[in-house]
Simulated scan of single mutants.
Amino acid sequence: MTGVSADALPEYRDIRVEHRGPISWIVLDRPDKANALSTAMLDEFSDALERLAHTGGPVVGIRGEGKGFCAGYDIDQVGTPKAVDPVADRDRLARNVNRYLAIWDHPKPVIAAVHGYCVAGATQLCVFTDLTIVAEDARIGEPALPLGGGYIAPLWAPLVGPKRAKELAFLPGNMISGTTAVEWGWANHAVPADEVVDTVEEMAERMARIPSDVLRIKKLSVNRAMEAMGVRTAAAGVPEMDALLHLSPSVTQLREWIGEVGLKTAIAEFRKPAGKEPQ
């Protein structure tokens, strides 16, 4: 097993890297912002992931600091197109997906440890990890407001099937528990919240008994089978679908309405039970 001290990596601002035995953790460390994926955090995440391909333990883990794993993209920085430019918007969205494809292509097994909440773009990240361990009471799902389309749920489809992916996409703010995520096939195991990290570290300990080059080829062989079924092609298509919808009049009107009523009110309206009239 190759190991390095934490000093071998840069000192990051919005993430931190912890080497604990056979696993090197990338910790999303912006708890005051619900670990929302800002531009700086995403850049740091990509940098750490690339460096850990050649340093650290034989297994990479990803977890969140604080009350939850991650609330998704920071809507002020990453989650909103800055101008009406479909090409730039598509490039922006593709850049996000490519960060997560780097997990898929990483030479080491990557395990996500999910507790609390895991929303929107954070679920994209977990789709591409090799294993996902969740807290039984975790809340996992779509953005609270339908401002995009074809960006989150299509990446779920290879794991959960088309009908469940559509259920996720068609109900605004749809959320499932960690237990349901396992039943659907999105996650591997659901355990009590205080056992998530220990479970991942125990699995990493067992994985580390296998030589790293063997682990790498085992991962590659399964990925190749999935890619033969079109997983990478599907991932490449999601930025176009989302960029297309960002230009639609209905989404423009929805953004204007949110600006008028405020984010909290808008979310509450979409989460009302069926049959309740908007106020």
Results as ranks from 00 to 15, higher is better:
Tyr151Ile: 08
Val119Ser: 01
Leu37Arg: 04
Ala53Ser: 14
Ile62Ser: 13
Trp104His: 08
Pro109His: 02
Gly79Phe: 10
Arg95Tyr: 15
Val27Gln: 01
Lys33Met: 08
Gly64Asp: 07
Gly57Pro: 07
Cys70Ile: 12
Leu131Ser: 03
Val110Tyr: 06
Ala94His: 03
Tyr100Arg: 08
Gln124Pro: 04
Asp32Met: 11
Ala112Glu: 03
Ala34Glu: 14
Arg99Phe: 00
Asp43Ala: 06
Ile103Gly: 07
Ile103Asn: 01
Arg99Tyr: 03
Leu131Trp: 01
Tyr73Pro: 07
Asp137Lys: 13
Tyr117Ser: 11
Ile133Gln: 03
His106Leu: 03
Ala88Phe: 05
Ala138Leu: 06
Phe128Tyr: 15
Arg139Cys: 00
Ser38Lys: 02
Val127Leu: 05
Arg51Gly: 06
Tyr117Asp: 02
Val59Leu: 04
Ala113Lys: 07
Ile140Arg: 13
Gly116Pro: 07
Asp32Pro: 01
Val59Tyr: 11
Leu131Asp: 10
Ala40Gln: 12
Ile26Met: 02
Val97Gln: 04
Gly61Thr: 09
Thr39Ile: 07
Trp104Thr: 09
Val78Tyr: 00
Glu50Lys: 08
Gly141His: 14
Ser24Arg: 08
Gly121Thr: 01
Met41Lys: 11
Leu49Arg: 10
His106Phe: 05
Lys33Thr: 08
Thr132Arg: 00
Asp32Cys: 03
Phe69Pro: 07
Asn35Arg: 13
Arg139Trp: 00
Ile133Asp: 10
Asp130Gly: 10
